[in-house]
Nucleic acid binder design. Sequence first.
DNA 1: CTGTTGCGAAACGCAACCGTAGCGCAAAGT
DNA 2: ACTTTGCGCTACGGTTGCGTTTCGCAACAG
Lengths: 204, 204
Amino acid sequence: MTTAPAREPAQRKGRPRDERIDTEITSAALEELSEGGFERFTVEAVAARAGVAKTTVYRRFPTREDLVLGALLRLNDDLPAPPPPGPVRERLIAVLQAVRSRATNSSRGRLLMQSVGEGLHSPELAEMVHARVLAPRRQVLRDVIADGIASGELRSDLDPDALIPVLVGPMFYLGAWKCVASAPKVSVEAIVDTVLVGLLPLRP
Amino acid sequence: MTTAPAREPAQRKGRPRDERIDTEITSAALEELSEGGFERFTVEAVAARAGVAKTTVYRRFPTREDLVLGALLRLNDDLPAPPPPGPVRERLIAVLQAVRSRATNSSRGRLLMQSVGEGLHSPELAEMVHARVLAPRRQVLRDVIADGIASGELRSDLDPDALIPVLVGPMFYLGAWKCVASAPKVSVEAIVDTVLVGLLPLRP
DNA sequence: CTGTTGCGAAACGCAACCGTAGCGCAAAGT
DNA sequence: ACTTTGCGCTACGGTTGCGTTTCGCAACAG
């Protein structure tokens, strides 16, 4: 109101913030979360890993929870590329295999799974993860399903939204037992084929 | 080696342990875990809730982790009853609806989901939860599937183990978003029907 | 009765971690 | 020039929670 506040000043006076440090901090926080989980997550470890003073962290993220949220926002940095055109079966397998490998191999995938569990105790976290991280990923699968319906490869009376849990759920289920020796091994292809064909007999 | 060690002394000399206190402690620990999650779980809160001295807790569970494991062992106290005979579709819906309600409504179900996430950082915990808690529950579903195959209601070339992720996975997926307002709502019946019929067209 | 163990109460040492403050210097504005 | 802000470093206060110890009393075995 003084002269012209400018909509995006973000830097009025004094030394501007180093934006590279922002990414350094969130990257370090993301790695810390991935390796140790929420329980062992500490601000000091993040600062140390980022090679940054603790003060600098607290200037951007006033509290530990803010830092967690800021880190989780970077979970979709490695968004999977949409699968190339082709038969629906192959496209579904491609998408779901990406989901599966993310839910197991990569440390970020494990973190995503943990975030779901932690979100049950923190609505704010749950809403953020859902809106900013998972919604974009679901869109990819939705598109594949819609394409399949449009091309006649899938039943025309299917509801894409209802299919998401059917297809993605098993990937999470498999990913959860990746580290358990006694867990059964099931391939993504087998699951996709099972869902495509259905369980009922009398099939040509 | 002295005289005759006796295989199950469990009480050689002195005052015997009050077994009711064991269940008091594990119950309290289970409730604490369900309400606050692993991150906020403390031994002192468990002792307070159980109305027991902290010393008494530490006598049975030497460390915090042991107490966690001891509490999780009681997760299958409320095992669901196997569904009554009937059409496979209805039996599947019954079993999966139980899974779903456990994964959302009950605080224990949410804890189970969190245990999966936490198990990714603790192999011991993961193995225990899988062997002692989840394996018994899967058996119920396996039986329903096997019955369906035997009665000819399901395809004879199905692998029951491969079906478990297909059916249970979506329940976990739905349960995870129970608390997220923007999540899509899908009924268990719709999922079962989708999986039963399959996604391909050309169906009579 | 004597010895041994279980239980509760209270306090302790100890370590970790959150969040803050002071100092010195660097990097931008006016 | 002067001022304002960012950054690192160091240290601090305060809290929390783990795991232990001590003491007094209760319960059970021989």
